[in-house]
Design a protein around this nucleic acid. Structure first.
Lengths: 281, 281
DNA sequence: TTATTTATGGAATATTTATTTCAAAAATAA
DNA sequence: TTATTTTTGAAATAAATATTCCATAAATAA
């Protein structure tokens, strides 16, 4: 029979680490090898098959299973889950992070904290992922426009309103297209070659905004797009598009990171515009 | 037979992303779903089984295999390797983290980082300072309303739009007052005793919103206020008001924390409303 | 409309992967 | 030393997972 049967094995990687430190000495030789390898290469444990891992460690698959069981896991696969979960958060805080936070914080979480966590995560990701040069190029494009036409519906509407408000305050001429009762074709006709369309659209992408962008692209009108995915139909490789993805909480996506990016875009546009105006004098 | 057979599928994740951008439009509907999901949740593709993933996407396992093959991979497993490899090196827990810190320290701050930091700080403060019970009381108030009238101008307008959008989606009846061309007194007259005014206002406080709140208070109409200071003229001790203060960057105030609070308020209202509706049955 | 192609889901199948078993090798105790 | 326990590897088995195939549905073209 097996020696030690742990009743409650560590369910998170951060607890597994000290456990191994404590019990390392008592483990048989081969299991010690596995322990050392696992602490040094957690990603391998998370991503490879038992055969591949045991090969790298220099033991047999059975030993891997025994190792897991000696800690108290049901088997190798059960242990592997802990390693996998530990990876999920590290690169980017996706939804799984929220789940684990929920679990760890014993229900005492306030209603608000779910949303602030998601917002903070979204903003952090925005900071890491945004293409700074795309932001600058987009700002330049907007700053050079004779008039900025802003379009967006549904969840994008607040963003439209905010961009419009801020751009106007900064002395950048802009109008909101969404509210007007014209057909998309009519709207597109309003845009002259030295105008720019600023389109905001999130999944599920509304047909109107999409159509508007399509027409503008056909007419060679410049388009700056703000969307939640490069796969969005309004994102085109040859245009200026900015991407921002909001973390969701039980199905709801906020606008915290989006608003942050919008402000940044507007302010930068205002700055470039001010420079241009100065040169003219 | 399958349509496009890619001879050389992207072997690294960073190449796969633009590939999907280019071909997204041409993909069948289900394959598009998979593409969007994969770009939004690369960790899930990397770590889960085909059954679990297809379940999350809402397609069949066959579709996952087809998706991989349409890109040119031998099958799902072949594609999964690319996702897994993209995770492997990303999580360098300590050494890499220090490096990136160092990098950001000596390199000049990006334009965006000023704003993300301000946003993050605002959200963090919101989490710490918000009166949870006030949030719950306000939600209850809104949920019980026959109709929610939302008012706010200027910088508050995006918040109005967002609250309106979200409340409607959640089945809470609401209308936006700001856009209407009536006098404040006329607007106030619209509100019956079982209605609630949801007023959003930030410094400098617009006279209109202030006036509206005053009239409603005189008429004993319930008011829920969202503002940036307890000193705000629309905040009254006997009413339900929520406070959120945005950090400013060279004179500009964002809306990240405000939007977070707005979403929270709306969702909580929707939740309470759903409970009330259930009880009625 | 009808014919033809393309896309999709479900089930059967093949493959991979983990687990168990058992005999033999080490290690330990008497 | 021998007896006993523990550890280990190899092969057999069980479980899971991915892939293929086919009938049908949907979309498109004639």
């Amino acid at each position: 029979m097996t020696k030690v049967i742990q009743v409650k094995p560590p369910r998170v990687f951060s607890e597994l680490k000290p456990w191994l430190q404590d019990h390392y000495q008592d483990l048989p030789k081969r299991l010690q090898s596995v322990a050392v390898f696992a602490m040094h290469n957690p990603d391998v444990i998370a991503l490879n098959t038992i055969a591949s891992i045991s090969d790298q460690v220099g033991v047999t698959p059975s030993t891997m299973v025994r190792f897991a069981k000696s800690i108290g896991y049901q088997g190798f696969s059960d242990m592997q889950i802990v390693f996998q979960e530990s990876m999920r958060h590290v690169p980017q805080p996706y939804s799984e992070r929220l789940n684990s936070m929920q679990r760890s914080a014993d229900r005492e979480q306030t209603v608000l904290s779910h949303f602030t966590q998601a917002a903070a995560a979204s903003i952090s990701r925005l900071e890491q992922n945004v293409d700074e040069s795309a932001l600058l190029k987009a700002s330049k494009q907007l700053a050079q426009a004779r008039m900025v036409y802003i379009a967006g519906q549904g969840r994008a509407e607040p963003v439209v309103a905010y961009l419009h408000y801020t751009l106007v305050k900064l002395g950048v001429q802009s109008v909101v297209l969404s509210g007007m009762p014209h057909s998309m074709a009519d709207k597109a006709r309003m845009l002259k070659t030295d105008d720019v369309l600023l389109a905001i659209s999130f999944s599920p992408y509304t047909a109107n905004t999409r159509e508007l962008v399509d027409i503008c692209l056909l007419n060679n009108t410049k388009v700056v797009a703000l969307t939640d995915s490069t796969l969005s139909p309004i994102a085109r490789a040859d245009d200026f598009h900015l991407e921002v993805l909001e973390e969701e909480v039980s199905g709801f996506r906020g606008l915290s990171a989006t608003m942050c990016l919008a402000l940044c875009l507007a302010v930068e546009t205002g700055r470039v515009r001010a420079e241009l105006d100065k040169d003219v004098k």
